[in-house]
């Protein structure tokens, strides 16, 4: 951490926009290292700031703190079995199937269903104007 800026907790709070209590909670959950020194001389660095920014980025993508904590654990030796995932299959027409990952939030499901309904409607409507893959216009 040599050469990096040093901040107090309140400075880190101001720079990151994350309340001090939340920063302490990140430390307690193993998402963030504690200050670089104990006691009165405790300070934080740009590495802490970058980690907080990364945590916020992960959260904005839908990850929860417990999931982020798992991500941060060092990968053990050897090959790991991939995590299973459940997918939902929607048949929109005889020749079109769409896969959607299971477990999305309700607003996302509504969004996906609305899009799929629209697509299914367009696929079933033979009168709509379409373009062939080579760019020719078809009716």
């Amino acid at each position: 951490m040599d050469g990096e800026s040093q901040f107090s907790l309140s400075e880190l709070e101001a720079r990151s926009g994350v309340p001090a209590r939340t920063i302490r909670f990140y430390i307690a959950r193993g998402l963030l290292d504690g200050p670089a020194r104990a006691g009165r001389g405790a300070y934080y660095t740009t590495a802490h700031l970058r980690r907080i920014e990364w945590i916020r980025e992960q959260q904005s993508q839908g990850a929860m703190l417990a999931e982020i904590a798992v991500k941060l654990r060092p990968a053990p030796e050897g090959q790991r079995l991939a995590q299973p995932e459940a997918w939902l299959q929607y048949s929109l027409s005889e020749d079109v199937r769409v896969m959607v990952r299971d477990g999305a939030s309700p607003w996302r499901i509504r969004q996906i269903r609305a899009a799929l309904s629209e697509l299914a409607g367009r696929l079933s409507n033979t009168d709509v104007e379409t373009r062939s893959p080579d760019g020719d216009r078809n009716k």
Partner: peptide, 12 residues
């Protein structure tokens, strides 16, 4: 806990 790439939106 063993997963190394456990991510995604949780269901409400």
């Amino acid at each position: 806990a063993d997963a190394t790439a456990c991510m995604g939106v949780s269901a409400a």
